[in-house]
Design a protein around this nucleic acid. Sequence first.
DNA 1: AAGAAGTCCTGGGCGC
DNA 2: TGCGCCCAGGACTTCT
Length: 274
Amino acid sequence: MPELPEVETIRRQLHRRLAGSKIVEVKVWRSGRETPRSIRLSAALVDRTIVSVERRAKLLIWKLDHGQSLVAHLKMTGRFVFVSSSHEPAKHDRIGFSLRRRGQNIRVVWSDVRQFGFIRLVSTSTLKKLLETYGPEPLKISPEKLAERLKSGSVRKLKSALLDQTVIAGIGNIYADEVCHRAGLLPTRRLASLSSRERVGLARVIQSVLRAAVAERGTSADDYVDAQGKPGNFLKFLRVYGRAGKPCRSCHQGIIKKIVLGQRGTHYCTRCQR
DNA sequence: AAGAAGTCCTGGGCGC
DNA sequence: TGCGCCCAGGACTTCT
């Protein structure tokens, strides 16, 4: 499932090829509950130039030259993939973008199997409001500031706080489990029970895990692929997620346990997480 | 007011 | 081979 590292990977690939390109044609093959209709989208996008492709939290933002932006959330199965000019829409392909830059034709397809994702056109002010609802970018603040975000006198569970996008933006189910494991903390720990030392350690782990995952172009645990259609390499570095019943990769003695926490599959080592 | 549970959706894996 | 069932989950909404 695309989280910060996966979305950042796609952002880089999209930005590299799309910045400065002009939208030539937009075809909506399949509209849906979260996919805009053809007419409105074409009218707003054709002949516009993409200034940049940015990321905030798990959102991808195509900044356009007239001030509007195309904002997409991949949720579970959303994808932006580069395709050849002869590409025929597959079953779950929803929108095809044809662009042109320096005499070259570029085609990008938006597809989404489970239709949880969304893609919408927003004004500058709407975008600003939307982005204000998110907590800070974990890789853009100091570990100390990050640790402060996890300071709370509440009985809230650690994993629930990590998944809360208003606390910290960009962490999803996989990295929440991986972070807890590397920090040696049980996902069920109450925030109030964390010492300041544990919080700073946790903040450093959040940053190192996310940085390492970005460097490996994300994790393909389910069906994530980047904009080149390639899986991410971080799967082989996972220590707990999807490893229920297997031995812990850190202590080699504990067995990874899976529980449900906040309706999410949650994995941890009973031996090295406390 | 926090936290639990329901909601959207489809493909894949399972048992029979 | 195929049917029915259950599971995966981001984030919003609704209930307790």
